[in-house]
Amino acid sequence: METTIQALRHIPLFAGLSGETMARVANAAIRHTYALGETVIFEGDPCQAAYFIAEGQVRVYRLSPEGREQVLVRLGPGQAFNTAPPFQRDGVNHATVEALTLVTLFAITCDEFRRLVGECPELALAILYDFADRLDHLTNLVEDLSLRTVRGRLARFLLENADTDTATSRWTQGEIAAYLGTVRDMVGRTLRAFADAGLIRMDRQRIVLLDREGLEIEAQR
């Protein structure tokens, strides 16, 4: 089995750390494993730790009072979540995080995390970069929800999530809806409209992008 340090080296936030800092991070990190469908943290609970994914995928979402979901992001190996609340007074978890696969992650308690960041400027800077990325992503999500049609959002989603020319099949239509802030029917209808227009082809398990340029025009709407 990989040592903690070896596993942590794969996490970009820690990749540039000096050996000494790395040893301290490894000392503070506790390895956890979650089964598919298991919830790692709940929105609104007091923040206990910051988390760094070694293996697997999670989804991060908020829930409305009546149970509708808005997915904020999907994260995979090397990515982190719950790194912002430790810096807030009486920080609570911003969102609920659920394992989409078997997930291995490292947890660093809030106190430890704050202490490490306070004492290692290189780590502080890496976390700042990460926050900036997060702000960038959330700003785009706000723009999507507020200013784009579902058609535009879906086109952009397909362009951003396609590996080469095939959109990842791991997203169900219901999950795409929860990310785009709409309902499943609407996603299904729009996908069919894109297919009719020759922009995509829907196979059983995947969506193939046929006309990237056409989708880019749609994404502006």
């Binding site: 808005q70 904020l72 807030q88 920080g91 960041v117 800077l125 926050f131 900036a132 706000v142």
Partner: peptide, 30 residues
């Protein structure tokens, strides 16, 4: 590099900003 306290205050501010946007997303969507 030399003033970790400064880094911490900036991180706090950015963390607030992240939370604000998460809340805005929830508002717009839900």
């Amino acid at each position: 590099d030399r003033h970790p306290a400064m880094a911490r205050v900036i991180l706090q501010n950015m963390a607030e900003r992240v939370l604000h946007l998460v809340t805005l997303v929830e508002d717009l969507s839900l």
